[in-house]
Nucleic acid binder design. Structure first.
Lengths: 230, 230
DNA sequence: CTGTATCCGTGTTGATACTG
DNA sequence: CAGTATCAACACGGATACAG
């Protein structure tokens, strides 16, 4: 009765697969594993070291991070590079193709934030905050504003530029900024999306804001969380 | 020395989570589980029954499909609905919010198809084929073409409409079509993306094309696989 | 400091069989 | 047809030890 029902299974060595020619299925094989897309997110603003990735993703364990970096590298999404001496440290960076999934990362985030399940009190990495600016800017509010806003998270600094109706975000130094926010990412969440006044955060010592305060506050008004469901 | 290093861990009952306030992390919790996004894909063109979902995703097992439908329902992405008598069958459909992730599904597919790992010989569901038209249409080629093209996959029929520089895709009947393709999804892959001539597929019996052949062939030229890497 | 390798308990996945 | 039950294999994540 059983007449070798499995003998013609092509290669049992294959791991679990979707067996689906659709690009979406392939995409989920490439970046759908647990943590993969968040590692990509952390790399979207430039190369990072192993420890920096761990810092941005505190809940990942080192062995899993190693595995994911390996599979992302095998897929051609991430490349590892050895910085020239005297630095001589290894960094991970996105390949040009890997960097092309930025719209996917931002799109998923923008879509998911409408869920009632969102909890803004969880950990928020500096990269996640900076990317959230691109994710949640309201284009109509940009108008003809020009602004160079700096962000300081401990030793790391980032720059957001608004010009010509667009916003760009990058790591970079804070020379020439119109204003600089110095605070933990979660505190900035309260300003940019919780719409708390900066004075409240400054009073509690959670924020230091320097430079052109008017422009900084106008900048903070450019962003908004998508409308929540039900 | 060890002084209760774990006692302050908040609640050990929590399952594995990203513990990340970023929307992307939330999105991966919502649709990042294995199979979830492909189930969403199969629902993007309208409600489906359990067995239809299995047919579109032949490699999924029934218990996993049950689990995923449950979690998608709990997340508010999928709703189950009982069709009124005399049908009285249960179907699964996307909620309005769930339907909003179409751009994500298409975007991941478009991005992933540049991977050398793509294998077009795998299974391809009718829904996947129809969505690939929206995914891979080259907008500049649409021009002022107007066309109503039908597709027949066994008992299921779909309609693609081109007008005003846009393309729409839906399930629907084939009355009034300019032309109708009758073939397996994988055969159509060879025409639309492999750029094989329709005559070749017709000769092998893999395709029947009826109606306005000139318009059908012009339609087939609207699509193109993204440029492969390396 | 930057990773990598291994062990291990647990949860998830998926093949198969089974029930309404 | 539409799921549920069972069970084995595997993936995950924590801890720890180790190498450059």
């Amino acid at each position: 009765m059983e007449l070798e029902k499995i003998t013609n299974t092509p290669d049992k060595t294959e791991k679990r697969r979707y067996d689906d020619a659709c690009g979406t299925a392939l995409g989920m094989e490439l970046v759908g594993e647990r943590w993969s897309l968040l590692i990509v997110r952390e790399l979207l603003l430039g190369p990072r070291r192993f420890g920096e990735l761990r810092a941005g993703l505190p809940a990942i364990s080192a062995n899993i991070l190693t595995q994911r970096l390996e599979s992302l590298e095998a897929a051609g999404i991430v490349a590892r590079r050895k910085l020239p001496p005297p630095a001589s440290v290894q960094v991970y960076e996105l390949t040009p193709w890997g960097a092309e999934c930025e719209p996917i990362v931002l799109g998923i985030g923008r879509w998911a934030l409408r869920s009632p399940a969102h909890d803004p009190t969880l950990n928020f990495s500096p990269v996640a905050l900076m990317l959230s600016l691109k994710m949640l800017v309201v284009p109509e509010r940009l108008g003809d504003l020009r602004a160079a806003i700096g962000f300081r998270f401990g030793a790391e600094t980032y720059v957001a530029q608004v010009a010509d109706g667009k916003i760009t975000v990058a790591r970079g130094d804070l020379a020439g900024m119109d204003a600089v926010f110095d605070a933990a990412p979660n505190a900035l969440l309260r300003i940019f999306y919780g719409k708390r006044p900066v004075e409240e955060l400054e009073a509690s010592g959670a924020l230091r804001l320097s430079g052109d305060r008017v422009r900084a506050i106008r900048f903070a008004g450019l962003f908004s969380l998508p409308e929540k469901l039900a």
